[in-house]
């Protein structure tokens, strides 16, 4: 859970970066024919995949621990 909170904080700070840049130069996201919107979409997809991998990793760790603990008991 801690890791998820940390990760979301990290992502939050990453997303506020383009927002800050946007207020400095009003059309950052719309410059270059709105190319940065495509970049943002790809970044969102990648972050999503990373979050899903983290969830899978946690499930695998839980299974590993279950098997490990049981072996020690025997």
């Amino acid at each position: 859970m801690k890791r998820i909170i940390l990760l979301s904080l990290l992502l939050g700070s990453m997303f506020s970066q383009p927002l800050l840049a946007q207020s400095a130069t009003p059309d950052f996201m719309r410059s270059m024919g709105k190319m940065y919107v495509v970049v943002a979409v790809i970044v969102v997809v990648f972050i999503g995949i990373v979050i899903f991998l983290t969830y899978l990793d946690n499930r695998l760790t839980r299974l590993e621990n279950q098997i490990h603990d049981n072996d020690q008991k025997q």
Binding site: V41, G48, F52
Partner: peptide, 21 residues
């Protein structure tokens, strides 16, 4: 679960796209 995950990504990427179009 993967379908739902792709669906959420579709919704979020759609929102990013919608913001600028």
């Amino acid at each position: 679960s993967v379908g739902l995950f792709f669906g959420i990504l579709g919704l979020v990427t759609g929102m990013v796209w919608a913001k600028y179009t």
